[in-house]
């Protein structure tokens, strides 16, 4: 059974995904590459704000591309409803950020409906849940980017089925939710500490040194939450994954994303389009 793409993966969509991801990578990982003479090194606490203003633009470009260029009413409705489900279950999560049930929805959505749809779903779900709780802050663009990657990668994983698929999704869910926590830490690392603390990044320092500081920052701040979150996400995937995945796949069949439409006249077949 091949992967369904609720948003067709055309060359331009792939290109946009790659371009947006490249900008995203820089927005997260800039402390490791910034030159000591760069303006960003002087304004380390301002740089995240700059990225927080730039990221919405590139995510908007991608969403316009995905929703306007490829998806029809079915894709947009499916996007809206799954984003609503993810938004609705977010408060059920444990802990401060409480993202586990939401992650499971994003994981299954990206898995069943393809990577491009997955990216749109991840970022949109973060956006709507922030709007609903009026939590639009500087962290939001980073969350949208990271959640987009999270769901997109679920659609890029190998096409296994049955138990192997659930095992793979569990492992992915655990690792990816850990990574999500690390990425979010990375995004506010310069912002929360500024420069001049023992854990702040040092512009131009060797990669290993900055990595060490970042890892220590992770351990000091959020590892206590990240690990239980990873375990919970994997457990929820195990418990709910199989039947929910079947439910999403059943719905995509009912939505008839790629069912052919045929017209016949009484005498002969005249036309066909997919």
């Amino acid at each position: 059974m091949s992967q369904l793409h609720a948003v067709p993966l055309r060359a331009r969509t792939l290109g946009a995904l790659a371009g947006v991801s490249a900008v995203g990578v820089i927005a997260f990982f800039w402390p490791f590459v910034v030159a000591p003479t760069s303006i960003a090194a002087d304004h380390a606490t301002d740089a995240p704000w700059f990225f927080a203003l730039l990221l919405p633009l590139v995510v908007a470009v991608l969403l316009a591309e995905v929703s306007g260029g490829g998806a029809d009413a079915k894709g947009v409705a499916m996007l809206a409803v799954l984003a609503a489900v993810a938004t609705a279950v977010r408060p059920l999560g444990a802990g401060v950020a409480g993202l586990e049930p939401m992650f499971v929805v994003l994981l299954l959505g990206g898995r069943a409906l393809g990577p491009a749809f997955g990216f749109a779903l991840g970022s949109l779900a973060m956006f709507t849940s922030a709007l609903l709780t009026a939590g639009v802050g500087p962290w939001l663009p980073f969350q949208m980017m990271a959640a987009g990657w999270f769901a997109m990668a679920a659609g890029l994983l190998p096409q296994l089925r049955g138990r192997a698929e659930i095992a793979m999704l569990m492992a992915y869910g655990a690792v990816a939710s850990l990574l999500y926590g690390f990425l979010m830490n990375l995004s506010f690392w310069p912002w929360a500490l500024g420069q001049g603390s023992e854990l702040s990044f040092v512009a131009g320092a060797p990669l290993a040194e900055n990595l060490g500081r970042w890892v220590t920052f992770n351990i000091a701040t959020s590892l206590g939450w990240d690990i239980p979150r990873a375990i919970l996400t994997a457990t929820l995937t195990l418990l709910a994954g199989p039947v929910l995945l079947r439910a999403v796949r059943r719905a995509t069949r009912r939505a008839a994303f790629d069912v052919p439409v045929r017209f016949e006249t009484v005498e002969s077949v005249t036309s066909e389009r997919a």
């Binding site: 009413a73 008839a256 069912v259 439409v261 045929r262 017209f263 016949e264 006249t265 009484v266």
Partner: peptide
Amino acid sequence: FTGGTLRG
């Protein structure tokens, strides 16, 4: 919307 074959 539904797919399928329409005759006539």
